[in-house]
Design a protein around this nucleic acid. Structure first.
Lengths: 94, 94
DNA sequence: TAAACTAGTTTATATTATAAACCAAATAAA
DNA sequence: TTTATTTGGTTTATAATATAAACTAGTTTA
């Protein structure tokens, strides 16, 4: 009846991150922070978790002299997101 | 961009409970436990929380000699659920 | 040269979800 | 009949989680 909701995605911030990356495919740390309204600390932690799960890749470089963290969604991440969307539909459809 | 997801509803079990009650309008403890696959203890706790928020009402009676706990969704609960559904759509639509 | 800002990370804390342990009564088994 | 077992829950202890606060390292501004 009710499928298990992937706990890694059933988190407001991580879901928002994935939602952004599904559309944009890749995005910078600062951009994600602004769009989600998350604190930098929280964002850093949640990006780590998504990276550990291999749902995203995180590349660190520099834009001029400033550090630049760029995140991209992986195939695995896209699949997990789509599964989550299908699963939660079961809960919210009337 | 991303609305806050009502934390009371952004919980797998509580969302499943509300989902059942949105359709059925009212349901017995045992029925909800079976449909959700929750343990009785977890279900008891989550029903309490929904009741405290006035999203559901809980009536205790007897069916023959056995206790019978019947749950119903309130107007407030319906409204909160519908708001949650609208909010999470922002996250999961492509 | 010191203050403030940028772009993050690490860590401590508060909240939450969950199962384990428990309770009371009813029924079944010995 | 007395002792398990089952039913229908509640309470409580623990583990997991989310989050902000504190911190780091370097840069720009005054």
């Amino acid at each position: 009846m009710f499928n298990e909701l992937n706990p890694l995605l059933h988190s407001q911030l991580r879901l928002a991150i994935m939602s952004l990356l599904i559309s944009a495919h890749n995005a910078e740390f600062v951009y994600i922070r602004e769009k989600t309204g998350a604190t930098a600390g929280n964002l850093s932690v949640q990006l780590d978790k998504l990276q550990e799960a291999k749902y995203i890749t995180v590349v660190k470089s520099f834009k001029g002299k400033k550090p630049l963290t760029t995140c991209s969604i992986t195939i695995l991440g896209i699949e997990a997101f789509e599964k989550y969307v299908a699963d939660i539909q079961q809960y919210i459809k009337k």
